[in-house]
Design a binder for these strands. Structure first.
Length: 645
RNA sequence: CGGGGUGUAGCGCAGCUUGGUUAGCGCGCUUGACUGGGGGUCAAGAGGUCGGGAGUUCGAAUCUCCCCACCCCGACCA
């Protein structure tokens, strides 16, 4: 603002009543910086908190319902929300915690554009990997671009232009900004939006190990994340995870332990091992192929039955009595068609289990993907009705069997390798023409092979599976909300962008990268999921929009105003953020709203409390009136209550 | 992307089957009065392109067609 600009009025005149606002201390300092943080003091009547008695019909989860009802967020479109003043304050607090922890871990903040020219994806093919999830647009000149879902490309490109010596490494940069993903199905309010606030960090290294290596920074970031989520008072688990479409080698997810979460994680209560379902290993399981037949092989007509449930019912069995045979093929460039390599991979699991592509890849030693349906049909597979026998009838097949789908059961129901038919009474020993391995057991690091038949762990873990880390212990499934994810990326992006530096021996070395994300808006929602009751939100103090709420039962009462002003000033000086409910509403309305918006400590001032000698102080979790405290002692009392909030 | 569903006031809904006064109800909002510690009472008000377009009809929120938006389940997914 220029010197000639009219001076803004600091104190707006209050329409009635004589509250001076904001309460000024005599140190209205001229310093351009603050020596100690003074808490904000805001009036409810002068901010925007549109509370609602009813939640919108589409809100189902507590975080969605309460954030909407309490006036934090408002829906603009599918998966797109306004952040109103209360929400913005929470987001800022979460961001501040993140900044403090990341800065302490040696990262530095920057900002890159939301708009990513599509050519930047040329090297990494992420425009294809991300597919429709990428929010694309074309500008007036016909140039294609995307709104960034993350910014590996643009950051790598930026660093490439400014870093060319090993002496400039390691480097760890981060930003906090809005990200975009065109979700097929946004849902659950802030938990899965198409536009969301995310902190993303990228680190660059010459080496993996040693000082300044990726592992060092990865560990520092791991610690920073633990600190961050602890400071948000979240109950969370750190789980091992697959790197996913972002590519790379190792990663951990930070999952808030919450039943309403969308993600399933597997934990071993004995060893503490935790992993997401896709990544989770399963302990050793027995398999066998020596059970003799107990029933005749019979072919049944099963037309027009989508889903294994229906087929099982029709055959008089259940999904766990069926074999599911999935036809896969070598993925991408690994496709060995034409040079004698395997052309198909048949993965066999029990009907109630799910094939895990990553595990199949590990079992056969090359990447696989679902077979192209047309090509598979042309090769002779009766897609939808395939049995393990197809492996012996069609050229170039590798058969991989999950232990639970082995001959532990003497008669299986399975496809008949012809359309609209399923067999019952299938017995591995009698009905499979190929050679089968001897009985034994297979675990995560162990697979058994005979010719082109393997037995290996190739399915997603489920609750009750043996733990891979503690013999005799079982895995348990829990739900979680993913709020953080850290990856060791390796050289995927630096290779693609030819980002390399000269090392001390004047050798050109590709830069090794890590990347680290935190869902900021999702973290806010996770806090609400974790901490609420039937009346509304209960914020943990470190992320609460205000620490204390002063409810004026009778706002026009002068004595109440004076007490409020004193308390607000003293709290502010202590660094406590204060919201004063100065609305001319009935007490019942104010208390209901107070519970809804969830400020941790409430101070109630009214003629009656003053008559009794002070104000009432209570924590959001407590019912009723709270403790009576003299006005002079309120600030201290509130501070104490906040300390353990 | 498959299946199902919904669009009527800021929010929650009724009306549509069987077309026909001025499109209703609750909450919220405005004004006034009485009230005054857990969404109070009474009175008077404001607020609507009935998602959009086309059609049928003397007449459409209502029937037909097309489009759009949104939601749920599934599949997918940091």
């Amino acid at each position: 603002m220029g010197a000639s600009a009219p001076r803004a009025r600091v104190t707006a005149r209050v329409s009635s009543g004589a509250l001076k606002w904001p309460p000024m201390t005599d140190t209205a300092s001229a310093l351009p910086f603050s020596t100690s943080r003074r808490g904000a003091v805001h009036r409810w009547s002068r901010t925007l908190i549109p509370t609602m008695r009813d939640a919108p019909a589409d809100a189902e989860l507590p975080s969605h319902i309460f954030l909407t009802r309490a006036g934090y967020i408002r829906k603009v479109g599918a998966g797109v929300y306004d952040y109103l003043p209360l929400a913005k304050r929470v987001l800022t607090k979460i961001e501040t915690i993140i900044r403090e922890e990341l800065d302490a871990a040696g990262a530095c903040e920057m900002l890159v554009p939301h708009i990513v020219p599509i050519e930047l994806y040329a090297g990494t093919k992420r425009d294809i990997d991300y597919g429709d999830l990428l929010m694309r647009f074309t500008d007036r000149h016909g140039r294609e671009a995307a709104l960034g879902p993350t910014h590996e490309e643009i950051v790598t490109e930026m660093l490439k232009g400014s870093v060319n010596s090993y002496k400039q490494l390691p480097l760890n940069v981060y930003q906090i900004q809005t990200k975009f993903r065109d979700e097929f199905r946004p849902r659950a309010g802030l938990l899965r939006g198409r536009e969301f606030i995310m902190k993303d960090a990228y680190s660059f290294h010459l080496t993996l190990e040693g000082e300044g290596g990726l592992n060092d920074t990865y560990d520092a970031m791991y610690t920073a994340y633990v600190n961050t989520f602890r400071r948000c008072r979240l109950d969370f688990s750190v789980v091992e995870a697959e790197a996913g479409p972002i590519g790379g080698s190792a990663s951990h997810e930070f999952m808030v332990n919450c039943e309403t979460g969308e993600d399933t994680i597997m934990v071993c209560p004995e060893s503490g091992y935790a992993a997401n379902v896709e990544k989770c290993e399963i302990g050793e399981r027995a398999y066998a192929f020596d059970e003799g037949p107990v029933a005749d092989l019979k072919t049944n007509h099963t037309p027009a039955m989508p889903g294994i449930e229906l087929v099982a019912e029709h055959l008089g069995t259940t999904p766990d009595g069926m074999l599911k045979t999935i036809v896969m093929q070598p993925a991408g460039e690994v496709n060995a068609d034409g040079n004698g390599g395997p052309r198909w991979v048949l993965a066999v699991v029990r009907g109630d289990h799910e094939v895990n592509e990553g595990k199949v890849r590990d079992a056969v030693g090359f990447a696989v993907e679902m077979a192209d349906e047309k090509a598979a049909r042309d090769a002779g597979f009766a897609i939808g009705y395939v049995s393990p026998r197809a492996a012996t009838m069609i050229e170039g097949c590798i058969l991989v069997i999950d232990p639970d789908a082995s001959g532990l059961r003497a008669d299986w129901a399975t496809g008949s390798d012809k359309a609209d038919h399923h067999d019952t009474g299938f017995n591995w020993t009698r009905d499979f023409a190929g050679e089968l391995p001897a009985s034994g057991s297979a675990g995560p690091d162990k697979q058994v092979q005979t010719g082109s038949v393997k037995v290996a762990d190739i399915r997603n873990a489920i609750s009750g599976d043996p733990s891979p880390r503690a013999a005799g212990s079982s895995l348990e499934a829990r739900r979680g909300i993913e709020v953080g994810h850290i990856f060791k990326l390796g050289t995927k992006y630096s290779d693609a962008f030819e980002f390399s530096v000269l090392d001390a021996q004047q050798q050109r070395q590709p830069v090794i990268m890590g990347c680290y994300g935190i869902g900021v808006s999702r973290t806010m929602a996770a806090c609400v999921e974790m901490s609420h009751d039937e009346n509304g939100i209960i914020w943990p103090a470190p992320v609460a929009p205000y620490h204390a709420l002063i409810s004026l039962v009778k706002p026009e009462d002068e004595a109440s105003q004076q007490a409020c002003e004193q308390i607000a000033r003293e709290l502010s000086e202590r660094g406590v953020d204060v919201l004063v409910d100065d609305r001319k509403e009935r007490p019942g309305v104010k208390f209901k709203d107070a519970d809804l918006i969830g400020i941790p400590v409430r101070v109630t001032i009214g003629p009656k409390t003053l008559e009794k000698g002070g104000a009432e102080v209570k924590h959001r979790r407590e019912d009723g009136f709270g403790e009576l405290v003299t006005i002079d002692d309120v600030a201290e009392r509130v501070s104490v209550r906040l300390r353990d909030a």
